[in-house]
Amino acid sequence: MARTIAKDHDQKRQSILSVAASVFAREGIARASMNQVAKAAGISKANIYHYYDGKEALLFDILDTYLSELNNRVTALNLDDMPPADRLHLVLREYLLAYEGMDFEHKIQSEGVSLLPQNMQKVLKAYQKDMVAQMSAILNAISDGKLGDNQQLLREVTMSVFGMLNWYYMWQPKATRADREGYARTIARLTVAGLPGVQNAG
């Protein structure tokens, strides 16, 4: 007979993911153990293995859940009929709001993706690719298509914008919603004002 799924299965799974993310972020993924996750979660190691067959599967589920939800949140924004600069501001704001409370997941993503098998990496990198493509398209639109003529420059500018987002996550962990919204405006204004100089640089 197939094992029935408990009614609180998803709730327990989400709790394990949250605790595991904190353990991985604190200890480092390579050093963290399933025993440490179980202890932090207040459950037995056997219970962890009821949900995941190992640390690799657990790490993948943390990152898959985090990146898929982030990707869906920002790429589902209705940007139609909106000036490019306003699109940029709205997307930046959504990223900063989405990052709130997700410090551990965000921290382990840079280390964790490369530790997974290629088939798992492919899934996670597809989410990242979607988000980079959205940002690149917005920045290219702000430049009236000029950045698109230099793909290397477009990528450099795109990743620099993500770098500013990551800076805020690293250095302002206690930022309020108002703080995050304010910084979204700062990044948007800085980017829009700076693009002409970047485009026209020799």
Rank of each mutant, 00 (worst) to 15 (best):
T176G: 11
M82V: 03
Y49D: 10
G182H: 11
I48S: 10
L115I: 00
R26E: 05
S160W: 02
N35S: 14
R93I: 02
M131T: 10
D149C: 04
E181K: 05
N119C: 09
M164D: 00
K122F: 05
L59Y: 04
K55R: 06
A2D: 08
T65C: 09
L67W: 02
T75I: 07
Y66Q: 09
G148D: 03
A98M: 03
R13K: 15
A2F: 09
N200Q: 12
N35H: 13
L190C: 03
D8E: 15
V23F: 03
D149T: 05
S110G: 06
Y51F: 14
Y99I: 00
R155Q: 01
T65L: 08
S68I: 00
E27K: 14
A40Q: 12
W167I: 06
A178Q: 10
G42Q: 00
S22K: 06
V157S: 03
Q118I: 06
A137I: 06
Q14I: 00
L70C: 13
Q36T: 08
K107S: 09
L153S: 11
K7F: 10
A40R: 11
L70I: 03
T191Y: 06
R180N: 03
K7E: 13
E181V: 00
H9D: 09
K122M: 08
H9C: 01
H89G: 01
Y52E: 14
Q172T: 08
V23E: 01
Y127N: 11
I62H: 02
D86C: 01
L59D: 07
K12M: 02
G101M: 08
W171N: 09
L124R: 04
E56W: 02
E69C: 05
S110E: 05
D64F: 10
E27A: 10
S143M: 04
L147D: 03
I48Y: 09
R73M: 04
V23P: 07
L153G: 08
E94A: 08
A2P: 15
L147R: 04
R177A: 13
L153F: 07
S22M: 00
S15T: 02
Y52T: 15
G163Y: 01
V198G: 06
